[in-house]
Design a protein around this nucleic acid. Structure first.
Lengths: 247, 247
DNA sequence: CGCACTGTTGATGTGCATCAAACAGCGTGG
DNA sequence: CCACGCTGTTTGATGCACATCAACAGTGCG
């Protein structure tokens, strides 16, 4: 559902000097010299332990973060402490974009496993972007892509039944892994069932049953957190007629 | 739910020269001289008839649009033609931000009534933004604010029951009208029940029943499309404990 | 006036939440 | 080594919120 368009990987330069995944985020389409200037913003990568928060709702916006290794979930939390997962993030994806709105983070980002991020000082990024049109353009696109992604999620929440949501979720993950050079047919879920459930607007039990349904139809093979997609086309068809009542 | 922070109206200049509402969108915090330069981008406002599309999914991105008069809905449409309303837009709000992602519009914008918009040529806007840091910053914030708004909607879709969703919807509209100098307690819904339903992930009948419930509790008085909020605090409490199971 | 569109309300059905119980994996400590 | 507690996953039974189906009322317009 998210990021329906693949990033233009073939347009990339070596990218952000030594980083192996940043080539998938900000520097798309920038020249080597430009990327080197972007490089100066990134003071030092750092690690985040599994379960730890990279930032929390209300924290002042200092940096955006590019995931280098590992994975994160972002969630908004209500007054009474319950959470809605708003996204999962794998290497090459950017965290913290919603903080630009009010100069403070509007959600909390938790590491799903031991992870590593590149902080990108935002004030400096904005400043640099003034002199690098392509950088500015990429930032705009990154922000806009997040909006498109969220609209797809709204479509999912408003119009799809539980099995379709699950299929869409798996397809989306598959696609994102594929872009990053991992297998699109075999991967590992780093999040728990209840986190998938929150993300998709369902209970964890419903996720389990959905998995069973997809398995019964021979579409996937899921054991614990290991996923094997057996019928990609079948999954896609499931999402294509993406309404409660196909009639 | 959306736009939880009011725009900084008191910081404004006369704004976009002669325009009365653009002071609420892009030029926030810009100097008079800067606004005049922004002004050069807006070649001519134009009208959109009720029911007509301002742009459609797949249209190339030429301009962003600021709503000057009237109102719009934006929707994404699935293969089989059904739609999910992703937002409603009133004067001073920007349309088309999701098109930046791929240089083409990712949704369709319909006028809910006879309306008027200011097209802002995007390529020129980006170019101008290079020399006007505050303009660039405002664009970034606009994009980010849309992301925050969408995350609130996801929270709503994932965690609120039908009556709470309706209350949140009315409060949000109220707040936005208030920011724009209209009454926060009395306003007119420009959209149909089924459009509200699509937006909130509910059927139109459920919207009707929700309205009846809020009326029975003495929170609002709704006749047709005329809304009078009678107990703002009561509505807010309804949304505050925003979960299916307050326990 | 007649027709199309929109909104309201009632009756019925169902998809998913909820409640409950059992199981699998896994590290810890006796 | 096994017993254990803990976390996460799976599956079954039941109930409810909302969808669906249906009938009708109000409104506006050619």
């Amino acid at each position: 559902m998210h990021e329906t368009r693949p990033l233009q990987v073939h347009y990339l330069k070596a990218a952000c000097s030594s980083c192996s995944v940043l080539e998938l985020c900000l520097p798309i389409g920038m020249t080597g010299a430009e990327v080197e200037r972007l490089d100066t913003l990134i003071v030092q990568r750092f690690k985040v332990k599994k379960g730890a928060a990279l930032y929390r709702t209300g924290d002042p916006l200092r940096s955006l973060y590019a995931v280098r290794i590992g994975s994160f979930k972002t969630c908004v939390v209500s007054v009474d402490g319950r959470e809605q997962v708003t996204g999962f993030h794998i290497p090459g994806e950017m965290l913290g974009l919603d903080a630009i709105s009010a100069d403070e983070h509007a959600c909390t980002a938790f590491a799903l496993e031991d992870s590593e991020v590149c902080p990108i000082h935002f004030a400096q990024l904005e400043k640099l972007a003034q002199t690098l049109p392509s950088l500015q353009h990429n930032l705009n696109r990154l922000l806009s892509r997040e909006i498109v992604r969220d609209h797809s999620m709204l479509m999912l929440m408003g119009n799809m039944n539980s099995d379709e949501r699950l299929a869409a979720f798996l397809l989306n993950l598959s696609q994102r892994f594929s872009i990053r050079g991992y297998s699109s047919k075999e991967f590992v879920l780093k999040m728990r069932r209840d986190e998938i459930g929150s993300y998709l607007g369902l209970r964890l039990e419903t996720i389990c049953r959905g998995i069973a349904h997809l398995r019964d139809q021979g579409l996937v093979e899921i054991a614990g957190r290991d996923v094997k997609i057996q019928d990609m086309e079948g999954l896609k068809q499931m999402v294509a007629g993406c309404h409660r009542q196909p009639r």
